[in-house]
Design a protein around this nucleic acid. Structure first.
Length: 283
DNA sequence: AGTTGCCCCTGCGCGC
DNA sequence: TGCGCGCAGGGGCAAC
């Protein structure tokens, strides 16, 4: 999916183009797009009409638009979700799921999602953080993220380091691309046992995670295709800076060895066989 | 209690 | 040309 840098790019666009506006109507075109919202899609639309949007927030890969009172419109893009600002007269996208109009008659906000793994919901609790996101850990770009606490939590884990990086209850915002990129920078293989890593090694890895996320934010995220775009439909440029992800067979930019691809959790992991050797005794 | 699989979807590119 | 398969940037939840 969009990982933290892509979601942050979307957040910035929403903050610029949606924050401060008052929702006129919300139209749900696909019920699956409304997630974890027990009162249902009709209620979702009713409760949003007339609400003013505050400063747009993000934690990890989740976004939320604070509303009046302590309510918030929560969004997750899943694997293929997009939030797009579109003129009202723009033809509906093939996978248009939800459409918001505003009382200023300006551009609409559209939630477009091919695979419908993403979704929106209205939270009715939590001034600082919607209650539904309480289980999501702070992300490493958050000023409140505590590095020491992360290091100790990692060492308590009995799992592989890549699985840990992808665990959103431990550290949020990292997905398959940026996990592979951070591991490449740290010269660690993803199946290394977290409890076997030294504190300095975890600290170095965390530094690389934070660096790669910040660099990607600076490039507007990673886009291989039109699926990953900002609210104006534009792609980011970080794909040019990738060192491991998607580079199977291409030379490692550090040592020249062809990058390998390995199966991992029904997906793929990319790494350098020389810089990131598999541990002798995997977990 | 912590960790691991399964499953939710659609579309694309590839090999036969 | 056409079809089946594998693959895709995620996460909730059941089951161990």
């Amino acid at each position: 999916m969009p990982e933290l840098p892509e979601v942050e790019t979307v957040r910035r666009g929403l903050d610029k183009w949606v924050s401060g506006r008052r929702i006129a109507t919300a139209e749900v075109l696909h019920p699956r797009a409304i997630r974890r919202h027990l009162p249902g899609a009709v209620h979702f639309a009713d409760v949003l009409a007339g609400r003013r949007v505050g400063a747009v927030m993000r934690r990890g890969k989740y976004l939320w638009l604070p509303l009046d009172d302590e309510d918030a419109l929560i969004g997750h893009l899943g694997m293929s979700g997009q939030l797009l600002l579109q003129p009202a007269e723009a033809p509906p996208e093939t996978h248009l799921r939800v459409r918001f109009t505003f009382d200023d008659d300006g551009p609409e906000l559209r939630f477009v999602d091919q695979r419908t793994f993403g979704g929106l919901s209205v939270s009715t609790g939590g001034a600082v953080l919607p209650a539904e996101l309480a289980h999501i850990a702070l992300d490493p770009v958050d000023p409140l993220f505590v590095d020491d606490a992360f290091v100790e939590a990692m060492r308590r884990r009995r799992t592989e380091v890549k699985r840990a990086l992808l665990d959103q209850t431990l550290i949020s915002g990292v997905g398959n691309i940026y996990a592979d990129e951070a591991l490449w920078r740290a010269s660690l293989h993803g199946v290394r046992d977290t409890s076997q890593l030294t504190r300095p090694a975890i600290r170095r890895l965390l530094g690389h995670v934070r660096d790669v996320l910040n660099e990607a934010i600076g490039q507007g995220g990673t886009s291989f295709d039109a699926l990953y775009v900002n609210v104006n439909g534009e792609s980011g440029y970080f794909d040019r800076s990738l060192n491991a992800y998607g580079r199977e067979g291409l030379p490692c930019k550090r040592c020249g060895t062809p990058i390998r691809r390995e199966a991992f959790m029904n997906r793929s992991s990319f790494s350098c066989p020389k810089c990131q050797p598999r541990p002798r005794r995997p977990l």
